[in-house]
Design a binder for these strands. Structure first.
Length: 797
DNA sequence: TTAGGGTTAG
């Protein structure tokens, strides 16, 4: 190579580099990346050593310039995603290049920037509802990238040493714990506990990596708590204890919240008690762990602690408990906007709209920007409560009151947001006012300056598919529990599909929930299922790359269920087989499909395959749920034979003894409905019914559930049976009246154990006939069964 | 770095 040639090459190179820098400046990232790729090749081909080194350094400068721009905020949106992934491509390019060392490695700072960009981006996309369509040009999954970067950071592979050419060993000591925690937190927020676990494992087995601190444990506990995974929450706590972790207030708050999310209020209350009472708490064991061994102090509860426990009480306890706790908070001056929102939540959950209105009357914040720091821009701190109240009215078929909430918001200067509009749109749709729902979408976009989301349309569609007001009573008695929503009509389904196309036309990508909703609707619609249309729809969307159903559990499960509903067992089987690792919901859907199509034997085999032999051993692939048992028990009872009823009973016992599961409302409804036909309860079914209703005695019934239960009872009553269980909820007028009249009756009969869990109710005559036992006095019958009538919670008269 | 509050959902 002559001196002349050399000059030309350098000039070319410089020109290219200038182009690249200009492209970066004008944010043409793809073009810039391509230019840099050319630069890399040019440098690699350089033969003269010093020039090779010099050009390599210049390429590195360009690369660093590129990545520092690529990994900068904002991290939201498709363009940001492309930019960040190009940044990752640039990192990969440099690592795989033959640039002169150390320029074939990447400075630590770049990795750290990438880490931040990737984690924030992944979390945002998760919440934006991107499906599994995320792949990069290198085929790398953006979910794994943060993990791989951390791996590099701890091993030093591909990381530039401080001084060029230095031979000193890479030291990972300067990797901050917060770098790990940032990634851990993002996986935890995404619900990817598998990945979170990988991070922890990496941290634990790497020398010099920072050990898990209360911060890391807080993050893990949060993640498992959100998934309702009590077992792993407990496991993390045990791990922390074993490692001598002294929990701080945040960790305890996280733990209380996790317990609340896992419906483990007893544990949440214990912890709260320790924090509130400190040394005087009676929970010695917990106290021992929670207390700081040096100072002897126990972290004191703060506003968040109280709000968290309040949320738990709202979820599981009575309104009374919530009210007394909120009064305590007010006295301690710990009341804030979250308290207001939580109290409204509790009130709405209990159907006590007056209370919700009263709380908002008194506690609505005067909107000020300072209160909103860290939240969405200038949003009123109580929109959430108003939104929930609106939604509550709408779901309780009180459209006018729902609309009145919009007016109240306006009067009080509470600006509706996309959540509020979503609920309003669903409210219109639920009441058959489709045009107004559509208008609201337009209104929120234009006047409100808000964008409807996939959830907006999903809410619209599913509200449409639920029966409009006025037709509620026409449901057949199949539809007594939430587990069985009313079957939509052809017209409703057509309307829903129309909205679905509106959605796509306005450029909003349907997600798996959208698709699953439509699939189920098509599978169940009246007068005949339209399963073929469902399959076509899925195929079309897949072909056009709009939604990918492959490996999408929700969509495939919906197809399994839909096939089952329309008697297509082969279809159900085909779709079910597509799932490499079916989850509980999928297995339940398949069990249901088998049973509906008359393949109880296949169902039973499937049940054993996934849930094990029922000995409580650990050979099971999955843990069954009450639903799994409900499906099989119903199928068995439907067979209406003595051996099948016995099998049902055995399954029920297995559910309680081996699986420690107890019946829920749906199961009670289902069994009652299946077993009580033509007013007769057959002898073979008595033991099962008796134990189920007795076990269900502790169930908590909320107004919505009470309503369903009331319908179930109505169904039972209308089938000439008299069957009633005892309610503790004094809020429900109708049931109260029924119980009162029942109590009168019991008094007249001289029976005063009204607290027993279960009564059969009839105007003094025996309405439930126990086949073959009609003539025998009840007490004799019970005695013959070895039942103590009241203690067994079962009385026949 | 980490903790509490609203919409759809098999």
């Amino acid at each position: 190579m002559t001196c002349e040639d050399d000059k030309v090459v350098l000039t070319d190179f410089q020109a290219k580099k200038l182009t690249a820098l200009e492209q970066i400046r004008s944010r043409k990232f793809l073009a810039a990346f391509q230019s840099i790729r050319d630069l890399v090749v040019m440098a690699e081909e350089e033969e003269e050593e010093e020039t090779y080194f010099r050009t390599s350094r210049k390429v590195d400068q360009a690369l660093q310039r590129f990545t520092s721009e690529a990994f900068v905020a904002p991290y939201e949106g498709a363009a940001a995603r492309r930019r960040i992934m190009l940044g990752m491509d640039a990192v990969a390019l440099q690592l795989s290049s033959n640039l002169a060392p150390p320029y074939d490695t990447v400075p630590k700072r770049v990795y750290l920037n990438a880490l931040r960009a990737l984690t924030v981006m992944n979390e945002m996309q998760q919440s934006a509802g991107y499906g599994g369509n995320a792949t990069t040009s290198l085929g790398a999954d953006s979910t794994y990238s943060p993990f791989r970067i951390l791996q590099r950071l701890v091993t030093g592979v591909g990381i530039r040493r401080k001084e060029a050419g230095s031979c000193t060993a890479y030291s990972n000591e300067s990797i901050q714990e917060k770098d790990f925690n940032m990634v851990l937190n993002s996986f935890s927020n995404m619900g990817r506990m598998d990945m979170a676990h990988k991070i922890v494992a990496l941290q634990e087995r790497t020398e010099n990596a920072p050990p898990l601190s209360p911060v890391g444990y807080s993050i893990l506990v949060k993640g498992y708590g959100r998934r309702g995974d009590l077992r792993n929450v407990d496991m993390i706590v045990a791990h922390a204890k074993a490692n001598g972790i002294v929990p701080d207030r945040i960790m305890l708050n996280s733990l209380i919240d996790a317990y609340v999310n896992c419906n483990a209020m007893d544990k949440a209350k214990t912890l709260f008690d320790c924090m509130a009472k400190g040394g005087s708490s009676s929970h010695r064991g917990t106290l021992k762990w929670v207390r700081n061994p040096d100072s002897g102090e126990v972290p004191r509860p703060n506003q968040r602690t109280y709000n968290t426990i309040l949320k738990g009480l709202a979820k599981s306890g009575s309104l009374k408990e919530v009210l007394s706790m909120s009064q305590k908070m007010e006295m301690k001056r710990l009341w804030d906007d979250v308290t207001t929102n939580t109290l409204v939540h509790a009130a709405v959950l209990n159907g006590n709209f007056d209370l919700a209105e009263a709380v908002l009357d008194r506690h609505t914040s005067s909107a000020n920007a300072r209160a909103n720091r860290g939240r969405r821009r200038n949003e009123h701190p109580n929109v959430e409560a108003y939104t929930e109240l609106l939604d509550g009215y709408s779901k309780a078929s009180q459209l006018n009151n729902a609309l009145q909430v919009m007016q109240t918001m306006k009067d009080r200067g509470v600006e509706p947001n996309e959540f509020t509009y979503t609920c309003l749109i669903a409210a219109f749709a639920r009441h058959g006012q489709v045009d107004k729902a559509k208008k609201t979408i337009r209104y929120m976009t234009t006047t409100g300056g808000l964008k409807p989301t996939a959830v907006t349309y999903n809410a619209f569609i599913s509200a449409l598919l639920s029966l409009p007001e006025g037709q509620q009573d026409e449901r057949d008695d199949d539809q007594c529990s939430r587990a069985v929503l009313p079957a939509p009509t052809d017209d409703q389904v057509d309307e829903a599909i129309g909205i679905f196309y509106d959605m796509m036309r306005s450029g909003i990508r349907p997600n798996d929930v959208t698709l699953a909703t439509l699939i189920i609707a098509l599978g169940r619609c009246r007068p005949a299922p339209r399963i073929e249309e469902a399959k076509e729809l899925v195929g079309k969307l897949e072909k056009n790359g709009i939604v990918s159903y492959k490996n999408n559990h929700k969509v495939v499960t919906a197809l399994v269920q839909s096939c089952g509903l329309s008697g297509d067992i082969n279809g159900a089987l085909d779709w079910f087989r597509m799932l490499k690792r079916p989850d509980l919901v999928a297995v339940n859907a398949f069990l249901d499909a088998c049973c509906r199509c008359g393949y109880e034997d296949v169902a039973m085999k499937t049940f054993r395959h996934f849930f094990g032999p029922g000995d409580g051993g650990s050979s099971a692939i999955l843990q069954p749920s009450v639903i799994s048992f409900s499906i099989l028990i119903r199928a068995l009872l439907k067979k209406d034979t003595v051996p099948a009823s016995e099998d049902a009973q055995i399954l029920y016992i297995e559910m309680k003894d081996a699986q420690k599961l107890f019946p829920d409302q749906a199961m009670v409804d289902l069994v009652l409905k299946t077993v009580i036909r033509t007013g007769k309860l057959q002898k073979k079914d008595v033991p099962l019914v008796a134990s189920i209703v007795r076990d269900a005695k502790e169930l908590e019934w909320r107004p919505g559930q009470l309503e369903r239960r009331r319908r179930a009872i109505k169904a039972v009553l209308s089938s000439r049976s008299r069957l009633l269980s005892v309610w503790n909820d004094e809020d429900d007028d109708i049931l109260l009246r029924e119980i009162k009249s029942e109590d009168t009756l019991l008094k007249r009969k001289g029976w005063n154990k009204v607290d027993s869990g279960f009564r059969l109710w009839g105007g003094g005559k025996m309405d439930i006939q126990v086949e073959g036992e009609n003539d025998r006095p009840v007490d004799e019958f019970l005695e013959s069964k070895g039942w103590n009538d009241m203690e067994s919670g079962f009385r026949i008269f």
